[in-house]
Every structure is written in C-alpha cells, then in structure tokens.
C-alpha cells in the first residue's frame, strides 16, 4: 500500500485496459447501459431545477450554483466509481474466492482490486459531470481563484469517495459480502444528499454531514469559497482549506480498515 510507483501506474492502465476489452465482448449491454446512464443526469438535475424554479432559490442558492455543487460531486464520484469500481463490487469478489488469485501475484492488493471490475461506460458520467461543471462556470462567471477552489473540492471528493469505497469493501471481510447494501447506501445516498447545499438540512443531519461523515467538505465548503460566501454562511475563512485533510482522513481510515480486514481473510472453500 505504498505510494503508487510509475510501474504500478502502467500496470493499472494495462489491467484496466484488459478489463475494458473484456466488456467489449458484450457490446449490446455496453451500449444500453451508456444510454441509460446518459438519462441519469436529467433525472438528477430535473428536481433540483424544479425546486429552485418554483420555490425560489434554495437558501439563497441559484440553479447555476446548485449545478456547481452537482458538478463537483458528480465529477469526483464519477472518477472514483470508474477507476476504483473493484472496491464497490468487493462483496461478490470475496465470496467467489477471487481474492486468492490477487494474493498469488507479486503486486499490491489494492492495485489489482481496483481494476478488477472497471466499467468503461461510467466514463459517460464523468463527461456529463464535467459538462455541468463547465456550464456552471460560464453562468457564474468564475475567476481562476474560484476554479482552484472547485478543483480542491473535486480532489477532496476523490479522496473522500475512495475512502468510503474502501471502508465499505473492508466491512465485507467481517460480513462476507452481506453489507453491499450498506455501501451503496453510503455512496449513492451521499452523492444524492450532496445535490443540495448542506445548509438546507436540519441541524442534526447537517452536523453529521460536517463532522461525522465529512461530506460537507466534498462540495459545500469549497463551493462557498469559490462563490466568495464562506463568511456570509457563518464559517471562518480557513474552513474550506481543510477539505483535503478531512477527506484525506476518510481515505486513511478506509485504507487502515481494508488492511485490517485483509489480515483476517480466511479464503473460501477449495
């Protein structure tokens, strides 16, 4: 679990490529899923648009600003879901005993796991999120400093979601694949909750999102900074800068948990 070396990176690309070529054997399913995914953006954003349109801005957030929030989460989650999908599908992987094969090879477990289930069609999600983000930039007329804040938020989001995926994967070691539900709830539920600024939620939920699972650091705080509204929202100016640390802590926790889980791995029959 050392820092990825260039050689590891090259192997990652190769293994991911192999996995994608494998999927190309099932072209029809690939095409169908890509089309379905393309509609998700509509189903995600339509309620946000309707809400902001008919009920006025949400707590002072315009639709363009909400789209910025969406784009940030969408981009980091999309990147993580595409590149580290193996961890999301870890339960079945474990139950099938495929981890044995990974352990038999002289390479890092995380590296091999990450590529085990890569799905090329998820790239569409990344492109959509990027598009939404780009449009939000134009409408909000953001300067370079703001863009940097957004980039920081997206980077934090990548660490955060990677950490959540690892935590979920690690829990499978204790429950032998039975907590896949829990993991989906956290990731999909998390990214859904983040469609809206956390300030709209009730106090206790907002606290959970800020101090518990630090989802607020993924998009809310960096977006506040990008829009120059940190003080207006009642937060000290350094709060958004904590984003990479809060999110990094989640990743560290995930790696720790995964390592502990791996140590108690018992393999499966024959």
């Amino acid at each position: 679990m050392a820092a990825p070396l260039p050689d590891d990176l090259r192997l990652y690309v190769r293994l991911a490529g192999a996995r994608i070529r494998e999927q190309m054997n099932y072209r029809l399913s690939f095409a169908v899923h890509t089309v379905i995914d393309a509609f998700l953006i509509v189903s995600d954003l339509a309620p946000v648009y309707l809400l902001s349109r008919y009920f006025g801005a949400l707590e002072g957030w315009t639709f363009a600003e909400l789209a910025l929030l969406y784009g940030m989460v969408g981009l980091s989650w999309g990147l993580v879901e595409t590149t580290l999908r193996g961890f999301q599908k870890f339960g079945p992987f474990l139950v099938d005993g495929e981890l044995d094969r990974v352990l038999l090879r002289p390479r890092g477990v995380l590296l091999q796991m990450a590529t085990a289930q890569i799905e090329a069609r998820k790239v569409g999600r990344i492109l959509q999120a990027g598009l939404v983000l780009g449009i939000a930039f134009v409408f909000l007329d953001l300067g370079p400093a703001s863009v940097a804040w957004v980039a920081l938020g997206v980077a934090g989001g990548i660490l955060f979601f990677a950490g959540i995926l690892l935590l979920g994967a690690a829990s499978q070691f204790w429950t032998m694949g039975q907590t896949a539900e829990l993991q989906n709830m956290l990731t999909y539920g998390g990214s859904a909750a983040l469609l809206y600024p956390v300030s709209i939620y009730s106090t206790w939920f907002r606290r959970v999102l800020t101090y518990g699972i630090p989802l607020a650091f993924v998009n809310y705080f960096p977006a506040l900074a990008a829009l120059g509204r940190t003080a207006e929202a009642g937060w000290p100016p350094w709060i958004p800068a904590l984003s990479p640390f809060a999110c990094g802590a989640v990743l560290a926790l995930g790696m720790l948990a995964f390592r502990r889980g791996l140590r108690r791995y018992e393999s499966t029959g024959s």
């Binding site: 829990s171 204790w174 429950t175 039975q178 907590t179 539900e181 829990l182």
Partner: peptide, 8 residues
C-alpha cells in the same frame, strides 16, 4: 440487511 449490520 439489519442482520448484516449486527454482524459488524
């Protein structure tokens, strides 16, 4: 599902 949580 709840059983799985309990297993943890």
């Amino acid at each position: 599902f709840w059983g799985a949580l309990r297993n943890l």
